[in-house]
């Protein structure tokens, strides 16, 4: 469990980072929190010949509000997101999702952008990015800055639309008005484990009627899965106070469960994952309404 040999560089600026990535994109890897990359190197599943440590690069961490967008710097630690202030639906959603990411030591080191770049389909941040149609801002020496919508960003497990010479710089999310009801629910065998199935929802509700619905599911496909069927079921419907037991939640859960085509593995077979989709979707919806 020792990595194969590699060169380690620690640039002090964004420009230097992009230069380094430009020199040798195929053999280099960006090191952010190291909470996914370092274990993979120790197992020798990843063998970069050069590690570019971005932990000293200024300007990559922290959040800021830009009009109706919240911009999260790539190196913002999970814990910083969990500690974010704000009573708006987006801040609440981010905080409750952050609490599910691993354990405290992992949240202290691991980064928001690192999770997205890593592209694990059960990752909380990948789900949220896909749920809210986030925009990923990436930069390279060769192509400069470009924006990739979440719908195009996640290609498969551990694979994104970023080129090897590109650095994820920041992520922009839409801020949500008070009419939004958000929720995040996940199932794992133990506290802190990667979710077997996770569901996050965002409903816009006006006068008790759902005007806009987004449902994103993790653990059922190679990338975060937006359930068009569940969303269609919800839009235009009136929300009950006790949503958990309502026919609407049941209908949405059924719609999502029949739409997904989950894998079977040691953590659960496809029928069980469908059951989990039903349970997590219901619980995510209930969280939104309970607020």
């Amino acid at each position: 469990m020792k990595p194969s040999s590699f060169e380690y560089v620690r640039p002090e600026s964004l420009a230097e980072t992009l230069d380094l990535l430009h020199q040798d994109p195929e053999e280099s890897k960006v090191l952010a929190g190291g909470q996914s990359l370092v274990p993979m190197m120790n197992f020798r599943l990843a063998r970069p010949s050069r590690l570019i440590d971005i932990n000293r690069v200024p300007g990559l961490a922290g959040t800021r509000v830009e009009g109706d967008r919240l911009v999260i710097g790539t190196r913002t630690r999970h814990l910083a997101v969990q500690n974010m202030s704000g009573a708006d639906p987006l801040a609440r959603l981010l905080r409750s999702a952050a609490a599910h990411v691993g354990h405290l030591p992992i949240r202290t080191r691991g980064t928001f952008g690192g999770s997205l770049a890593h592209s694990d389909a059960a990752s909380e941040w990948c789900l949220i990015a896909r749920l809210l149609d986030a925009t990923m801002v990436v930069e390279s020496r060769a192509r400069g800055r470009r924006e990739i919508p979440a719908a195009d960003f996640f290609l498969s497990i551990f694979t994104t639309a970023m080129e090897p010479d590109e650095l994820l710089v920041e992520v922009s999310l839409p801020r949500l008005g008070d009419e939004h009801r958000t929720g995040f629910a996940e199932f794992a065998r133990r506290a802190g484990d990667f979710a077997i199935v996770a569901v996050t929802t965002d409903l816009a509700v006006e006068k008790g009627v759902v005007t806009h619905a987004r449902v994103c599911i993790g653990g059922v496909a190679d990338t975060p899965f937006r359930s068009g069927a569940a969303e269609a079921t919800l839009v235009g419907q009136r929300l009950d106070d006790d949503i958990a037991t309502s026919p609407l939640a049941r209908a949405a859960a059924e719609a999502a469960a029949s739409e997904v085509d989950p894998p079977s593995d040691a953590h659960g077979d496809a029928p069980y994952r469908r059951d989990l989709v039903r349970a997590m979707l219901t619980s995510s919806l209930a969280q939104g309404v309970a607020r």
Binding site: F43, R189, R190, A191, G192, D193, F194, A266, H267
Partner: peptide, 15 residues
């Protein structure tokens, strides 16, 4: 199928 602590689930304090 269980060769790391991701798949061999040792209970923790939380459990």
């Amino acid at each position: 199928q269980a060769t790391t602590f991701m798949d061999y689930l040792m209970p923790t304090m939380a459990e």
